[in-house]
Amino acid sequence: MPTELNYWPLIGVAVVIAGFALRRNPVLVVVVAGLASGLAAGVTLPDLLALLGKTFVENRVLLLFLLTLPAIGVLEHHGLRERAKRWIAGFRGLTLARLQITYLAARQLISMTGLTHVAGHPQTVRPLLAPMSEAAAERTLDGELSNAERNTVRASAAATDNVGLFFGEDVFMAFGAVLLIQGFFASNGITLEPLAISLWALPTAVCAFVIHSIRLHFLQRRLLRERAASSTGGTDDAAR
């Protein structure tokens, strides 16, 4: 290895930024970025191909969630999402914000026990939380959702799942991130107990819950206000 740093591999970062800015196909952008960085670092093509292939195979665990698709597909084909909507619509007093805040709390608490894969976008958000959120929003707004409103509510469902997962999982002391932190410090001569690290994830977990809950309240208020504005004759749907 040369002693001075080689800055040329940074070209891969530039490729990523340019590719996403130009909205090229992300998969292709990422593959090209990997090739560019590798070649710029002076890795030979056969070695680079082997590196790409080996890392790709090592990460195949990321697609294990595909096994949920047949079950979800069958249930949706037989009206699971419609049923979820109808069930939620039967609850009086359940608003969009209350539903999503409850889900946020549950997702955070379950992640804190290390069960990060119990919920997720294919398992729970698409078949359950998203249609339930739509039904709750229809109740809150007292009417059918417009396309824009529906997309906002769905995006918020996905965001709520992410926030709950990210800021719950680190409180679990055997979670990968905590072990990564511990391992990094251990290899640099600082010994820490995993519990000592994971406990310090609690303040952020509380902040995340408070901040996102406030945002969900504001989202609901915004939807109500826009409804009120448009029903009084204004075509103010461009507001934000």
Binding site: L10, V27, V30, G34, S37, V43, F56, N59, L62
Partner: peptide, 23 residues
Amino acid sequence: VLLPMVLATLGGVFAATGVGDAI
């Protein structure tokens, strides 16, 4: 569906080629 896997692969390539150290 493939994006998470190729991104993790890119992370491996970046790590192996010293992108992190340069940043």
